[in-house]
Simulated scan of single mutants.
Amino acid sequence: MRERPQSFPSVALAKLVQKGRKITYGIVQPGEFVADGVILVRGRDYSAGWRDIDGFMRVTPEIDAPYKRSKLKPGDLVLTIVGANTGTVAVVPAWLDGANITQTTARIAVDSTKAIPGYVEQVLRSAIGQEAVYRFQKGGAQPGLNLADVEKFEIPLPPLPEQRKIAEILRTWDQALEKITALRALNIRRRVWFRTHLFTGKVRLPGFTGEWREVPLSDVLHEHGSKSTGAEEVYSVSVHKGLVNQVEHLGRSFSAANTDHYNRVLPGDIVYTKSPTGDFPLGIIKQSKIDREVTHELCHVAEPHHGAAFFELLDKVMPDWERRKQRLERAMA
Score class of each variant (00 low, 15 high):
residue 247 V to D: 08
residue 190 R to F: 12
residue 161 P to C: 13
residue 254 F to E: 09
residue 175 Q to D: 15
residue 195 R to M: 03
residue 219 D to P: 01
residue 229 T to F: 03
residue 219 D to L: 07
residue 160 L to G: 02
residue 151 E to H: 05
residue 201 G to K: 10
residue 207 G to C: 00
residue 239 V to I: 14
residue 244 V to C: 07
residue 219 D to N: 12
residue 200 T to E: 09
residue 255 S to G: 02
residue 238 S to P: 15
residue 171 R to K: 08
residue 261 H to P: 01
residue 144 G to W: 15
residue 192 V to S: 02
residue 162 E to T: 08
residue 250 L to T: 07
residue 199 F to V: 02
residue 166 I to C: 07
residue 193 W to K: 00
residue 205 L to R: 12
residue 215 V to F: 06
residue 229 T to V: 13
residue 156 P to Y: 08
residue 178 E to A: 15
residue 243 L to G: 08
residue 222 H to C: 12
residue 152 K to G: 00
residue 143 P to T: 03
residue 152 K to F: 06
residue 162 E to G: 01
residue 206 P to Y: 11
residue 219 D to H: 13
residue 168 E to T: 02
residue 165 K to T: 03
residue 185 A to I: 04
residue 245 N to Y: 15
residue 208 F to R: 10
residue 222 H to T: 11
residue 257 A to R: 15
residue 144 G to E: 07
residue 257 A to G: 10
residue 213 R to F: 13
residue 150 V to T: 03
residue 184 R to Y: 01
residue 243 L to V: 15
residue 238 S to L: 06
residue 256 A to C: 12
residue 154 E to K: 11
residue 231 A to Q: 10
residue 184 R to L: 04
residue 209 T to M: 06
residue 188 I to P: 00
residue 161 P to L: 12
residue 201 G to W: 00
residue 246 Q to K: 04
residue 179 K to I: 08
residue 188 I to Q: 15
residue 206 P to F: 13
residue 221 L to G: 03
residue 165 K to E: 06
residue 228 S to H: 12
residue 195 R to Q: 07
